[in-house]
Write a protein that binds this DNA or RNA. Sequence first.
DNA 1: TTGAAAGCGCTAACAA
DNA 2: TTGTTAGCGCTTTCAA
Lengths: 330, 330
Amino acid sequence: MATIRDVSKLAGVSVATVSRVLNKSGYVHKSTIEAVEKAMQTLQYKPSHIARSLAGKRTATVALIVPNILNPFFPLLARAIEDTAQENGFSVLLCNSDSSTEKERQYMEVLATKQVDGLLLASYTARPEELSAFERDSSIPVVLVDNCFPGQPIASFIARHREGARMAVRHLTAQGCRKIAHISGPPHVFAAHERRLAYEELCQDQPWYTPDLIVQSDYMISGGELAVKQLLSRHPDVDGVFAGNDLLAVGAMRVLYAMGVHVPGQIKLIGFDGVAVDYAVPGLSTVVQPVYEIGTQAMRHLLARIRGESVAPEIREFDTRLASAASTGC
Amino acid sequence: MATIRDVSKLAGVSVATVSRVLNKSGYVHKSTIEAVEKAMQTLQYKPSHIARSLAGKRTATVALIVPNILNPFFPLLARAIEDTAQENGFSVLLCNSDSSTEKERQYMEVLATKQVDGLLLASYTARPEELSAFERDSSIPVVLVDNCFPGQPIASFIARHREGARMAVRHLTAQGCRKIAHISGPPHVFAAHERRLAYEELCQDQPWYTPDLIVQSDYMISGGELAVKQLLSRHPDVDGVFAGNDLLAVGAMRVLYAMGVHVPGQIKLIGFDGVAVDYAVPGLSTVVQPVYEIGTQAMRHLLARIRGESVAPEIREFDTRLASAASTGC
DNA sequence: TTGAAAGCGCTAACAA
DNA sequence: TTGTTAGCGCTTTCAA
């Protein structure tokens, strides 16, 4: 592998000059530029990122920590982030935290010693103080995705879950549902909380409402299966289910199908996220988050921070969209 | 951030000694080890990966290039690889090639200058000579996943697709199918080719067989939708479909459902991969690849290569497993 | 068992 | 417009 020194010798200039043409910094005579570029060509010179990182301070690498890339929400997010990174000459380190604060902590420690230039974090367990401390100590900018801490100075990119959930419930009502249940996600997950609040807000004054129409679950298919069984044993007359996310909805759909309960004939079902839409048969109604857009914008913001542009750590919210399909009778 | 020099001063030893206790290399007196460790503690010392990489040659980072993390096959692979990497102190860079040789080439160039220690490649477009050349020029070991070049000295980890496909076809036959079609994947994809060969091998001598029972497609849901439409217009009497992968099967299932063709009553359907199983309603029969195992073993092999252990670049094959469900009447 | 010192390949003052 | 040089933080001979 040719080094900057080899190039400088071949071109008959100093390494500083080579560095200058490499970084297009400072003044270099046109003819020297050409000579240097020619030397680089013939030597097949490729600057070492490692050496650059040690000398300068940029690694051109960011990290993405997600709970689990197997949850279909995250591949789309990862893809958006990687695309945007790639366009800007950055690489992406992928980390799975399993929502364990311990694993998150470990990752962040390694990432700091690897000197990544920025961190995109999809976490529902991290505390805002820890994140601020990490930013301060490591001086690595952090951007939160799909979560936020209102009032804290942490950049966050998140959909308008409350509004989206309202759309879901209203849609069920509009489709004729008269007793709607909700399978909610983990309460410490901001999005899950928001969705549940929207359901309660719209339903709690209805004559048929009782608190145990809400079944709490995780965000997994198996959770949806379990939840809908519980629900039907408590309330056999439910005719609409707002599942906290698409995985829960798929789980619910599978059980209903197995039990011979017709969807949407007997029960109408709607999910949230818009990630499993293409897989479900029959089509699953859902509230679609603009995940790709969220990822792109989050990465753009992070890049701006990395470049030292002074961007405020605002909370950016994104509109959702109702996608109605067979599972609600559309 | 404390450096090795800070530690050496506080401990009253040289940086070389600190380096020795850091790497547990060479002889160090027990009492000095303790002193150094104490100094590291009080200074909260964390060695810089970057500096280590420049001095030594290890980055403790590998790259994973996949066509597209959105294809549900790859998150599972990525998860396996990342888990194994993490257990061994390695990080994983994620790259999406979109099966473009140009993007692959670009990534590999960047990865070489970033001096990743190894490359896991899921590619159906790369040529074996290029890979060998890359290994030689960059001295970065490459492991191929879900593809292989028989006869070439490139380590490969891949399922026994031919056998798996035979299971699929035999299962359809056993379930009573008397005219079986095949939706095949891209012909340049090794796995797709193998699966198709198995289908042909088992079906071409049947009285009902005609070559146009094979519809060629991509490996996407939309492809499956299109293919099954074509198929039914050509052969309305087909009663079994072996889809080249689960995405194709899901696409087929959606169209069949929409057309009012009952699955499995009128047509029995089976997929391949085992990645969308949990999403489909009703359950999709499929041939399950041990994707997690493949990823784990591939990463282990790569780690061995990185450590300089002399491992032969063999082709490792993995058994598949039939998972029968509602879509074939089980 | 320990230390001094020469790099690893590059950037960024500072001089010229 | 260009060159000299001192690092960046660590590893690794080579001597002691």
